[in-house]
Write a protein that binds this DNA or RNA. Structure first.
Length: 282
DNA sequence: CCAGCAGCCTGAAAGC
DNA sequence: TGCTTTCAGGCTGCTG
């Protein structure tokens, strides 16, 4: 399940490979989740960015002068946006298997290689929008600040929490208080911050701890090439190493690494949640 | 507007 | 062994 560290790892690998490449042909699975892939034919990659868990491929289509608005820039800028969902994988290969049952979209580049998107469970999604026009992608449009930006502060998180009555972990997973944190790094962050994920109130002091916890958890993921529990591999097919450095996620029934108490697990608003009942008491 | 929840998906693992 | 059930979960869209 790719979260910010996994998506960023893929972005850093793909960016130099795709920059200045043109798409000469494309195809996709029939689902409307993936068909926007085909809109990108004729475009050239000019940047590969990330917001939260969304990969944003900025492209220029170059061919359609916008005379109606008197715009002298004769290229039409779009964003090809990819969310990897649970099992999404991206790669650039010379010998794509177009019959692979999990291939959901592909873009053939001018040099003959193919940019591929595999997604076994089809939780991923592709969008094609005019540059920066995210109004039709609700979660992206309302996405909170990037966790390493200065805008993401204890004050910000404290005030965000005041606007909702939901469990704190559920708020974090909504992507609105902060971008890019999913279930694994959320459990890690709450453990690091010594905050119960089912709490609904966040003092300023605790908010500061949670900001730190989120950053420490994500930094560990980034430094270790992501967390591979089942499916995740980067654009080179390599697994991450962060799964060997988790303090909390997946450790229910094992002793807490801080206090030795047996870690517990429950379902919280539909998400598996692990925590230490002593370090993270209510 | 928000809270809560079903539904989307399928491979892997567990249960029988 | 082989079949069935359960589980994983990010996001969308619906209902109250």
């Amino acid at each position: 399940m790719p979260e910010l560290p996994e998506v960023e790892t893929i972005r850093v690998q793909l960016r130099p490979r795709l920059l200045d490449s043109s798409i000469v042909e494309a195809g996709s699975h029939w689902s409307a989740k993936f068909t926007p892939a085909m809109e990108a034919v004729g475009s050239e990659f000019i940047d590969v960015r990330r917001r939260g868990k969304y990969l944003i491929f900025e492209v220029d289509s170059g061919s359609s002068p916008d005379t109606s608005s008197g715009n002298t820039n004769n290229s039409s800028g779009h964003d090809l946006i990819i969310h990897l969902g649970m099992t999404g994988r991206l790669a650039v290969v010379g010998d794509a298997d177009f019959d692979h049952p999990h291939l959901r979209a592909w873009w053939r580049l001018a040099d003959g290689d193919t940019f591929t998107f595999h997604d076994a469970r089809r939780f991923g999604r592709i969008h094609w929008v005019p540059r920066g026009d995210y109004a039709g992608i609700a979660t992206l449009a309302a996405l909170g600040p990037e966790p390493f930006d200065g805008e993401f502060t204890a004050q910000h998180l404290h005030e965000a929490a005041k606007r909702s009555t939901r469990h704190l972990k559920t708020q974090i997973l909504s992507q609105r208080p902060v971008a890019g944190v999913g279930n694994i790094y959320a459990d890690e962050a709450f453990w690091l911050a010594r905050i119960n994920p089912a709490a609904r109130h966040l003092s300023k002091e605790r908010a500061a701890r949670l900001v730190d916890g989120i950053r420490v958890a994500l930094r560990s993921g980034l430094d270790n090439g992501g967390t591979t529990l089942r499916d995740y591999v980067d654009s080179r097919g390599q697994t991450g190493e962060n799964q060997h450095r988790l303090y909390c996620y997946g450790r229910s029934g094992e002793p807490c690494e801080r206090c030795g108490t047996i870690m517990r697990r429950r379902e919280l608003d539909g998400r598996g949640t692990t925590w230490c009942p002593v370090c993270q008491a209510r």
